[in-house]
Simulated scan of single mutants.
Amino acid sequence: MVEQKTAERMRVPVIAVTGHLGSGKTSLLNHLLREPGARIGVVINDFGELNVDAALVTGQVDQAAAISGGCLCCLPNAGGLDDALQQLSQPKLRLDAIIVEASGVADPVALARIIQFSDVGNVRLGGVVEVIDAVEHFRTVDTEPIPPSRYAVTTLAVIGKTDLLTAAEREAVSARIRDRIRERNPDVYTVTADYGRIDPQLVFDTVTEEDPLDQLPIAQLLREEAAQDHTGHQHASSVSREFAETVLPGALVDLLENPPAGAYRMKGRLRVRGPRQPRGYLVNVVGRSVQVERLREVPEAGELVVIGMDLATDAAAASLEALAAADGGSPDKEGLARLERHRRLSE
């Protein structure tokens, strides 16, 4: 895994978990919070005077912030959310990610924009996870001839509650949902997972498989209990490669903009060839969103990891090999300009 907890702390990814009322957002959040070693900050928004959803979150978190009294995207100037993100993104907390569980009436498009353009400088949008109730979806969310606009910002769609359908209905309904989502956004990554059991690797990174020393024992107990559930969850595949030499910026951008088949996330720190000396970059890809940050110090060696549920591992490995083998005879000014453009857009 790519080392993240260094003295040079990068921006904390903020993942929005959206979906209609009762779609299974809290079940997915609880599942993610059971990941060993994860240090997750959580913002829970409930439409109403009380945070009733907060009482349902049984996983163990390091820091939690709750916003009540309205939908996140309706708070004046998003001040409530910015305050929560400011609190949770403090470097001393060393969080792996912040998850925002939005109210069922929240507008995912507005919420994604609030996070992306937040005044909090040390956070970045880490994806929008749309949780879908396969049983009620076409009676509650997707009811018009044109697919809902919420799909436009979705990076990962989790289709759940298919266990409540008949065997004959499951694949047909799931396929219909996928087709409708891709009418609006062809690049959405979709998985089917009941009770929110997706592989946490699709959402965030952790650098240890053990609980931090300051975790409460209940976290481990909850995970041990979950491990006894034979239904479990599907595991994502990953392919990684170390890069001892610098890589060409143009070849890197080509890979970031056109990930291998089945890839949902890519992440890494790389030594990139510059006009006079190597430059260091941190890259993160979620769906088709490319984020690039400049590192103050050039790493001694680079590494890139590709993750996906249906990842074509041979093709992914070949793509990484091709990046390493790209001919670097002359300075790649055009490629560097493209990489720097992604960096500026990421800011």
Rank of each mutant, 00 (worst) to 15 (best):
Y281K: 02
P278A: 00
Y264V: 09
V286G: 06
S174M: 10
R197F: 06
V272L: 06
E210N: 13
G280R: 03
V298Y: 00
E245L: 12
P186Q: 14
D229Y: 00
N258A: 13
S237E: 09
R265C: 10
H230C: 01
T231V: 11
V203Y: 06
R223Y: 00
M266E: 07
L202I: 10
P260G: 08
R294G: 02
G280S: 04
R184N: 05
E303M: 15
V298I: 12
G274N: 12
L256Q: 02
V286D: 09
V247Y: 09
F204P: 01
A244H: 11
A244L: 14
D211C: 05
Q215D: 15
R288S: 14
G280C: 03
L202H: 05
P212E: 03
V272S: 07
L216C: 08
D254L: 05
R197I: 08
D214G: 07
R170V: 12
A263R: 00
P260I: 04
V292M: 05
Q228H: 09
L270T: 03
L248M: 15
E210W: 08
G302C: 11
D194W: 08
T246I: 04
E297D: 12
M309T: 13
V188T: 14
L270M: 05
Y189N: 04
F243R: 08
N185I: 12
D199V: 11
G280V: 10
T246W: 11
G287T: 03
V173H: 04
A168G: 09
P212Y: 02
V285F: 03
A175G: 15
A175V: 06
M266G: 00
L270Q: 08
Q215G: 12
L304I: 03
Q228R: 14
Q215I: 10
A193W: 07
V191Q: 03
R184I: 04
P275R: 15
S237W: 06
P186R: 13
D199H: 09
L282A: 14
G262L: 10
A251L: 09
R184S: 12
I307Q: 00
V173G: 03
I218V: 13
R223M: 04
P259G: 04
Q291K: 14
V298C: 13
A168T: 13
L304Q: 01
Q201G: 11
V305E: 08
S174D: 05
T206A: 10
P259C: 09
R197P: 06
A193G: 04
Q228G: 07
L222Y: 04
V286Q: 02
T192D: 11
T246R: 07
P259M: 11
A227I: 00
G268R: 01
V188I: 05
L213N: 10
E242A: 14
L295N: 10
E224S: 04
E171M: 07
L304T: 02
E209L: 11
R279F: 13
L221R: 13
R276V: 15
R271P: 11
P259W: 05
P299M: 04
Q215T: 15
T192V: 15
A167I: 10
A172S: 12
A263L: 01
Q234W: 03
V305P: 05
